[in-house]
Design a protein around this nucleic acid. Structure first.
Lengths: 336, 336
DNA sequence: TTGTACGCGTTATCAA
DNA sequence: TTGATAACGCGTACAA
């Protein structure tokens, strides 16, 4: 292995000079810089990350805690993990993958051992058990999702309230008056609040039902909705698995989309093309989530390295309404 | 930060003794072990991973190179990445995520800097450009996928030839005589060879067509197949995106599955439940892929650490045929 | 503009 | 069974 000392000897300078040439933290004469660079090239020197991490008290590694078990396959998670990794690389950081089956102790492990400089937590829940560990260790962190108590942390999430508002506005604009909101039974329907507020203001009547993302579950929910509110003409769905069944059920009940019933999905943009007809979707930028979290964390790290107090940031990313072919005016006959 | 020296002082022993108590590489008297362990507990000592990595010349980190861009969403990749991470943890290793957009230089970076002890490469192609880098640096590696030249490497992949054989056998058993094999245009149809051999032996006639995984692409392929071989009664599909369109086209042409046409998918097991009717699928164990790769790599690492020559292993994982409702006897009328 | 020398926290060799 | 002590390779305060 070629070391800094080897390079120094080869270039006829001291090892600290080589170090400074590489880090750029000192002004170096043109002559020595050239000699050092040549020595680096000739010897094929690569700085040793382990020694660097020890001496600099920084590993340039951030830990990403993902909510994954091997049998789950949520593409969004992977998208975010990838965007975190790519963003981190652009700032010279690498990403260590921690699966959440290690629990809060996984966070403690990477933070207290100094393996990672900071942590990004995905799928943060309101009373997340990993957060006390971060506080206890004083670990710098950025969260994807909203914590109960944001003190000492930065976080980023989709602005689901705005997403709900977009749904209500779009349907109201199209003349709908009776809407059903279908959510996931075990996830908070973050978009519901925003939807409710805007729906009220726009004079929309609506019911909210949580439903499993299975055909049977959606069938039951669908039947109840139609029994309670037979005049329902539009559906907002914040439950990826429920969309396919809902579309099938609408067809099965003789309703054409969007002529007889409109459907909006709240979720990843890719949903649009996975169904027929192409869906109207309200989606947030998943990749931005990763990038913003990385930038938040790195700002905290540089602040802490300077002895400053890191700034707590809470960012909400604005969602976008993409109009597809699953929404149309109430009572639309297909001929505009 | 609590260091080894702090613990040593607190316990009234030398720091090397503490180190040996923790590593278990020396026999320690019951008395001192107790004192040291108590000191560790009282001070809340956590070994420093950076210093350990430098002194031990091992980081206990393996790099996983994933073929991911932020907009791609292949659940299989994530499944493998997760299983690699979990398997690695069981052996005391952590996983560094490297995206393939760094190219071969990403491999060079983590290996030559000593950041990682070894590398796992996903989606290895026959003439993969990352492999020369591994050879040049003498980096220990395990590959998921089959390299052209396996010398100095370990690798694991699905036994696609066996998968093809299972398809041919299943269809032949059901009495089919004319089969179409639909593959992906830009991926090697690894299952084709095995399918061909077994098809010949079983007296199956078949055509092979590559097709895009789009509705339009599959429609063209489908039409050509029926034009060339109107008596085709079964389809083997090794192209995830082509399955949905194919099923739709079969229905559209008045064919009922499986009464008039049988369909087998070669791919991830989860495909079975994503279609109607539930698919007959030949799939390999994706999670095993990750686990085996980790174990191969760690065997190489321990061998190399002992100064021994690591053993090159090539493992093929046996696929399984799961019979669903998309295959049936040729000319089946639905009433058995 | 450059060099010296110490420290980072462990591991591992050599003695005792 | 235990203790000194020299690496490990780099960063940086201090000195020149």
């Amino acid at each position: 292995m070629v070391t800094l000392a080897d390079v120094a000897k080869h270039a006829g300078v001291s090892s600290s000079t080589v170090s400074y040439v590489l880090s750029g933290k000192r002004t170096i004469s043109e002559e020595t810089r050239r000699r050092v660079e040549q020595a680096v090239a000739e010897l094929g020197y690569h700085p040793n990350a382990r020694a660097r991490a020890l001496a600099a008290r920084r590993s340039y590694i951030i830990a990403l805690v993902v909510p994954l078990r091997p049998e789950s396959h949520d593409p969004t998670t992977m998208e975010i993990a990838t965007s975190v990794t790519i963003a981190a690389r652009q700032y010279g950081y690498d990403v260590l993958l921690i699966t959440n089956d290690e629990g809060p102790e996984g966070v403690r492990r990477v933070a207290s051992s100094g393996l990672a400089d900071g942590v990004i937590l995905m799928d943060v829940e309101p009373d997340d058990q990993r957060i006390p560990v971060l506080r206890e260790l004083g670990t710098q962190a950025a969260l994807i999702g909203l914590p109960d108590e944001p003190g000492g942390l930065s976080s980023v999430d989709h602005d689901f309230a705005a997403a709900g508002g977009l749904c209500a506005d779009h349907l109201a604009d199209l003349g709908h008056r009776e809407v059903a909101f279908i959510s996931h039974p075990r996830h908070t329907a973050h978009a519901l609040g925003g939807f409710r507020d805007r729906a009220r203001r726009r004079g929309l009547r609506f019911v909210h039902r949580a439903s499993e993302g299975t055909y049977g579950g959606v069938a039951g929910t669908f039947a109840r909705i139609l029994a309670d509110r037979p005049d329902t003409t539009a559906f907002v769905v914040q439950n990826e698995g429920a969309i396919g069944p809902l579309l099938t059920l609408l067809r099965g009940s003789g309703r054409t989309v969007p002529e007889d019933a409109s459907v909006i999905a709240v979720g990843p943009g890719r949903l649009a093309d996975q169904h027929t007809p192409r869906l109207t979707v309200v989606s947030g930028p998943d990749q931005e989530l990763g990038r913003v979290a990385v930038e938040q964390l790195l700002r905290r790290l540089t602040a802490a390295a300077r002895g400053e107090q890191p700034v707590d940031e809470q960012v909400l990313l604005t969602p976008v309404l993409t109009v597809g072919e699953s929404t149309g005016p109430k009572g639309w006959d297909g001929k505009s």
